[in-house]
Amino acid sequence: MVHKLFVCTTCASIWKDGKRVGTSGGQLLLDELLKLNQSWSLSSNFLIQSVECMSACNRPCVVAIAAEGKYTYLFGDLPVDAASLATTASAILVCASKYATQSDGSLPWSERPAPLKKGIVAKIPPMQELAVIG
Results as ranks from 00 to 15, higher is better:
31 D>F: 11
48 I>L: 01
48 I>M: 01
53 C>M: 02
44 S>Y: 04
14 I>N: 13
31 D>P: 11
20 R>V: 15
46 F>V: 00
6 F>A: 02
28 L>C: 13
17 D>T: 11
7 V>G: 04
25 G>V: 06
46 F>L: 05
6 F>V: 07
34 L>R: 15
17 D>R: 14
47 L>R: 07
43 S>G: 01
52 E>V: 04
22 G>H: 10
12 A>F: 09
54 M>W: 00
43 S>P: 05
47 L>S: 09
26 G>W: 08
28 L>Y: 11
51 V>S: 12
11 C>L: 09
26 G>V: 10
11 C>S: 12
14 I>R: 15
12 A>W: 07
22 G>W: 10
22 G>V: 08
34 L>V: 11
55 S>F: 13
53 C>E: 01
43 S>K: 15
9 T>S: 12
4 K>F: 13
38 Q>E: 10
24 S>F: 10
22 G>R: 06
39 S>Y: 06
20 R>W: 00
4 K>D: 06
35 K>E: 13
25 G>A: 09
14 I>T: 15
41 S>T: 12
10 T>L: 13
23 T>Y: 05
33 L>M: 04
52 E>P: 11
16 K>H: 14
53 C>G: 04
37 N>K: 09
40 W>K: 03
35 K>G: 06
23 T>E: 15
21 V>W: 08
39 S>H: 12
44 S>T: 14
18 G>Y: 03
45 N>V: 08
48 I>Q: 02
28 L>S: 14
34 L>A: 07
50 S>Y: 00
11 C>F: 09
47 L>M: 02
48 I>A: 01
21 V>L: 08
13 S>E: 07
25 G>N: 08
37 N>D: 09
36 L>Q: 15
42 L>T: 06
17 D>W: 10
53 C>L: 02
46 F>G: 03
39 S>R: 13
